[in-house]
Design a protein around this nucleic acid. Sequence first.
DNA 1: CGCGCCTTTGAAGGAGCTCAATTTAGGTGG
DNA 2: CCACCTAAATTGAGCTCCTTCAAAGGCGCG
Lengths: 263, 263
Amino acid sequence: MAGRTPVRIPPPHSRAPENPAPACAPGKVALLRSACSTCNLRELCLPCCNLTRAELELANRLAFNRTHIRRGESLFRTDDRFTSLYAVRKGFFKSAVLLRDGRRDQVTGFSMAGEVLGMDGIDTARHTCNAIALEDSDVCAIPFAGLQKLARDIPSLQRQFQRMMSREIVREQGVLLLLSQMTADERLAVFLLNLSQRFAAHGGSPSKFNLRMTREEIGSYLGLSLETVSRTLSKLREEELIGVQQKFIRILDHAGLKRLIGR
Amino acid sequence: MAGRTPVRIPPPHSRAPENPAPACAPGKVALLRSACSTCNLRELCLPCCNLTRAELELANRLAFNRTHIRRGESLFRTDDRFTSLYAVRKGFFKSAVLLRDGRRDQVTGFSMAGEVLGMDGIDTARHTCNAIALEDSDVCAIPFAGLQKLARDIPSLQRQFQRMMSREIVREQGVLLLLSQMTADERLAVFLLNLSQRFAAHGGSPSKFNLRMTREEIGSYLGLSLETVSRTLSKLREEELIGVQQKFIRILDHAGLKRLIGR
DNA sequence: CGCGCCTTTGAAGGAGCTCAATTTAGGTGG
DNA sequence: CCACCTAAATTGAGCTCCTTCAAAGGCGCG
C-alpha cells in the first residue's frame, strides 16, 4: 500500500535513492515546513519548487487534517469511500485484504512514518484493503480532491505525486519477485534489511528495532507460514546474522544478510 | 506493467468493472475518435468529457506517434530513459526484469491490445523492466511530457491517468495474493480466466485463444516451474475444464474453473 | 497470578522442483 | 516435398523445502 523500492533488489519496501527531490529554496519553503515540520512527507507535501506564498498557504491548509489512530483500529477498510491519502506521521500500519474464504486475511504491505497510504482507492473511489494500526499512530489526512486541484496549479507537486504512484508500482514488482523466486531465508533477509533501511531513513537505528507485527503477519506478507518465519529467524540467529528476542531484532551481520540474498 | 484488476478476486490482469468512463458526448469526441479509431486506449486518450476543439486537436497530435515492433524485439529495456507511455494497439508484450544472477529473468506482466505499458518509468525517469513483443505488434507512443501538460488543462484526463496508475497498483496486489496463497491449479485457473476476459474485452473469443507466451514464461509469471505449468494444464484438460493443444486453449467449463478458484 | 496470545520447536506429510527422457511442432534447406 | 534441426511441450521419478499438526514455553495484561 505504501513504501518504497529500489530498482534492482526486490525488497518489500525501500526508498528509491535515485532522483532525490530537488534541493529546497530555503526561504520560500520555510513557511510550509514549519507547519508540517514533524511530518516526513516532504516529498509529497513539499515539492520544494517555486511556490508562491498563496500556494504555500493552500498546501499548508491542505495537509493539516491530522488524526490519531489507536492500536488495532483501522484507518480505512475495504469498500470504504476513498476521500484522502494518508501520510503516516508516527506509528505503524499494515494493509491487508480479506481472502475469499473470509477467515484469514492477506497482508499486502506495511507502512511506517514518512510513508503514504491509500493510493489503492484512487481508481474506483473505494479502498481495496483494510489499513490497520499496529501501534498507536498519527496520520495526516490529505484530501484527495484538494490535492488534485493544488497539483493542477503546481506542476512539480503533480510530478511528485505521479512519481510516488509509480514507485509504488515498482515496489510491488519487487515483492512479486520476492514471492515467486526466493527461498524462506532470502525472503526474511530481504524483509529485515528493508525494515532496517526504512527505520534508519526516519531517524531510527538501522541495526536495532522492534518488529511491530506478529510472525503470522510477516508470514502472510512473505508467503510463508508463521512457523517457517519463526524457524527461519532462529536459523539466521544460529548463523549469527541477527539477534532475535521475540519482537526485538538486531542486525548483527548486514553484509552477511546481503550475501544471502545473492549479491 | 499494464493490465487490469477487479477488486476482489486476485487475477493477474483484468478490467475493473466499476466506474466506467462517463458516456461520451458523441458530437465533440467524434473528431478525436476518428484519429484514434482503431486504438483501444480510449480510456486514457479519450476522457470523453467537455473537451474544447483545441484540446481535442492537441490530444490528437499527442497520441499519433505510432511504431511497429517485431516479435522478439523490445519496446524498451531496463534503464532506458523514460519518455513515453505506450498504448498497445495490436499484438502482445511481456514485461520482465533480469534477476540478480543475470541468467534467468522474471516475467512481471503481459500486455495486450488496449492496455498501457511503461508506467514503471515515471518515478525515476528510467524504465525498471524490459518490454518485449511476443508477436509482431503496434504501439502508440504517448510522450509523457505532453500528456502531463495536457492533463493539466483537462482535469478529467488527469483523473483518468491517476486511475490507471491506481488500477495498476491494485492489479499487482492481486498478483501478490495469487503468488502467496494459491496452489498451482488455482494460479492457472486465474491466469486462464483472466486472459479469456481480456481477449474478449478487445473483440476476441473468450473461449478460444492462442497463448502468445511459452510455458516457461507463464511459469515465471505465476511462480511455478515450466514443468508444473505443463502438468497442471494437462490435469485441467483431464478434468475437462479446458482444451489444450500446445498454445491453443479452449475454455470448456468456465464455471468449473471459477469454482476451482474458490467462489 | 492466571489467562490468552504469541512464539518456539518437533515430526510427518505433501506440493512442487529438479533432473532426465521422449514427443511434438515449426522452420530451414536440400 | 521430405528430411532434418531446434525449440517447446509433455511426462516420469526422486527429492527438498515448506506446510500442517501438535505440544510446550514465554510474555503481557487484566
